[in-house]
């Protein structure tokens, strides 16, 4: 099925593009080489930038993972697989990996659910809708470190608004950011607060892109609200949901600012995610080799997740 589709696309394109040979060439240069030059002129800047700023550092990063380097010594020292063996056999690595998964599933999953709910609400004609939309989006444009500071204030033991509220409700005084059980949920909560608005706006755009006729047709067919949601809204939103899942998972793997400011990865390793571990190995422990090992693992994981998402999940996405 897919194959045939592909073949059709190619045929159509082949028909559309006029054969270069039919255009008389004014110069001596053969047409194909002119095309090649144009092609190169367009892609070179991009490829060069990518090579210099992405691929080369990536290779260098991989190489560093086989070395010991304190970032001051003139040359890193080749130590073979030592870093890899040490990282993969350490309890820390597995704790950090588990934290990363909890953080990602928690923040992405809950954010997308809330965002979907919010967008459905905001898609209805209600008073004050525009204000709520704007207010909801505001956290998305604030810098993470500023948000983290404000929340640290709200959560501060004794005088923070949330702590006072919790105490007033009879809850014991908790040091949210310094408690091994509460630190992770607290950070996740802040991330959700920060990213829900953005996701909701994207969902909203998706909702408005679903043709009204589909709803009308469903209504005519006697579908109730739930059936309309399941059979029209959900498939209609699936490209948007897919896009949000991919980008949110990638960005949650890279979430750093909020963790850095609120908990510093602690207490102990309670909020240390892979990216935070890369940072602390490199810029707290000055062990560039081990940091590079963690970075490579992080990269591999993200690559794998994205490939899986694109291969498996996208098949279920309904593009119009």
């Amino acid at each position: 099925m897919e194959r045939r589709e592909e073949a059709r696309v190619i045929t159509i394109q082949a028909l559309r593009v006029p054969r270069p040979a039919t255009v008389p060439s004014p110069s001596a240069t053969p047409a194909w080489s002119r095309d090649l030059l144009v092609f190169l002129a367009f892609i070179t800047p991009n490829v060069v930038t990518l090579c210099v700023f992405s691929y080369w550092p990536m290779l260098r990063n991989l190489w560093l993972s086989f070395t010991y380097w304190d970032m001051i010594a003139p040359e890193p020292l080749w130590i073979g697989l030592d870093n890899w063996i040490e990282v993969l056999t350490s309890a820390t690595f597995w704790t950090v990996l588990r934290n990363t998964l909890v953080f990602t599933v928690g923040s992405v999953g809950i954010t997308i659910m809330i965002a979907l709910g919010l967008s459905l609400l905001l898609n209805q004609k209600r008073r004050g809708r525009n204000f709520v939309r704007a207010a909801m989006f505001a956290p998305a444009i604030l810098p993470g470190s500023a948000i983290a500071l404000v929340w640290t204030f709200l959560l501060a033991p004794y005088y923070g608004l949330i702590s006072q509220g919790a105490t007033a409700l009879g809850m014991p005084m908790t040091r949210w950011q310094n408690d091994p059980y509460w630190a992770m949920p607290t950070v996740i909560l802040v991330i959700i607060w920060k990213s829900t608005g953005y996701d909701a706006v994207i969902f909203l755009a998706g909702l408005q892109g679903i043709p009204r006729e589909l709803y009308e047709a469903a209504r005519v067919d006697g579908a109730n609200a739930w059936q309309r949601f399941v059979n029209v809204t959900v498939p209609g939103l699936s490209p948007v949901a897919f896009f949000l899942t991919v980008t949110s998972i990638l960005s949650s793997f890279q979430a750093f600012d909020v963790i850095r400011v609120m908990t510093g990865g602690g207490p102990v390793y309670a909020t240390t995610t892979l990216i935070y571990q890369v940072y602390s190995e490199a810029f707290v422990g000055f062990n560039a080799g081990r940091a590079a090992t963690y970075a490579t693992i992080l990269f591999g994981l993200m690559l794998a997740i994205t490939v899986v998402q694109i291969r498996m999940v996208e098949k279920r996405v309904t593009y119009e």
Binding site: P57, N61, V246, Q254, A282, T296, L298, T306
Partner: peptide, 17 residues
Amino acid sequence: LSAAGLLGTGIALAACG
């Protein structure tokens, strides 16, 4: 594109300092 984006992230770390 997403692969390219990914490649960037592993490395952006190195630039953190």
